[in-house]
Amino acid sequence: MEEFEPNIIGFLCNWCSYAGADLAGTSRIQYPPNVKIIKVMCSGRVNPMYVVNALQQGADGVLIGGCHPGDCHYSRGNYLARRRIAVMKRLLEYIGIEPERVRMTWVSAAEGRKFAEVVEEITKDIKKIGPMKKIRRENIW
């Protein structure tokens, strides 16, 4: 049987995490190809509806990447995102969606290595719990 390859959507901020992912690439660090990156200007831009919608539309996991606390280009975006995602994560967990599916990380532009490690970890975790079926759209008409 073919191994389950999860689909993970990564919302990465323009200034740190995206640059971090870029660095991982230019440094030729090997990491799983499961994360599909969507660049956002700031992790504070990530509407929690994005997370639910991604899970509905076929993502098995969602990764939100922002700058380290204090480093936000817009000074407070990542702090706000931290609050929002903290509440969202707990709510999803309460409803019965595995907490591993929604992850958040701080990756700076210099941390190509860390980005690769984070992706490796979440891919491993999500492979373990299997595909997201609970709230996925079936698209059967």
């Binding site: 606390p69 204090g70 407070r76 702090y79 706000l80 931290r82 609050r83 929002r84 995602i85 903290a86 994560k89 907490p99 992850r103 958040m104 990380t105 701080w106 984070v118 970890e121 979440i122």
Partner: peptide, 16 residues
């Protein structure tokens, strides 16, 4: 409002 502010030491144990 809750989501319109933050504290620098908000919990972040869930962050990788």
């Amino acid at each position: 409002p809750l989501f319109g502010m933050f504290k620098p030491d908000d919990p972040e144990d869930f962050i990788l």
